[in-house]
Amino acid sequence: MWDYSEKVKEHFFDPRNAGAVDDANAVGDVGSLSCGDALRLTLKVDPDTETILDAGFQTFGCGSAIASSSALTEIIKGMHIDDALKVSNQDIADYLDGLPPEKMHCSVMGREALQAAVANYRGEEWSDDHEEGALICKCFAIDAVMIEETIRANNLRTVEEVTNYTKAGGGCSSCHEGIEEILTAVLAERGESFDPNAVAAEIKKPTSGLTNLQRMRRIEELLEEIRPNLQRDHGDVELIEVDGKYVYVKMTGACAGCQMAATTLGGIQQHLAEGLGEFIQVLPHEELARRAAGA
């Protein structure tokens, strides 16, 4: 059974504005192929003020399609048509205290019916530009078409990147297999194959807004701040290299070879990250040599 809000149930069991408006001067007929639902919205618009005097719906669809239609008519009655056009599908869903992710398309259908009806009133032709695919990520209601298009437009290669761009896969992660399949298919279009071990390309963003030199100085300052703590334990730290988000340091004195070295590095990392306002990783300088050797 769907987890419908009380508001959805109320609008389903007792729909407002059901049926066609008698002397309507705007009609919008839309449907969603993916689930077969369809909706006719009829409006009576005052030609002088362009406000919506009355609205009625007829819906062939499930509980949430009927509830979304009912909610839409309640929201737009009394609105100027320009303001009504600003009503988003999220507004409809919010009015109903939310819809299950699988049912968000019901609210999309409502908004489209409104656009179609206004186009009809203005004597224009309305055509739908959005295509709906199979629902992949149920946590964030992201469908296959959206994922495919985003992969194509941004040359994405990994599940992590898809999550960064679309949010899909960022929740419970059970759709990762589905996302991998889409990646495999889209990458194949451009003659590439999907590599599950590829690392996500770093999203370039000027994180702390500092120049390289300022950032380097800031790192030194931050290290100075914690140096007294280390010296109290008869140890010390020396900055060796900064490479993007990697900060290489050399632990000296009692800190070198100390069993707590890893914990200490963690503490330094946290202090630097907080002070810089960006994510950085503090690594022992041996790591630098290893990486340079290409291991």
């Binding site: 192929l33 055509s127 739908d128």
Partner: peptide
Amino acid sequence: DGGPVEEPEKAFAPTYA
């Protein structure tokens, strides 16, 4: 009016997404 509209597929032919 108590019955299917005449030629339902034509009378109501929505724009599909």
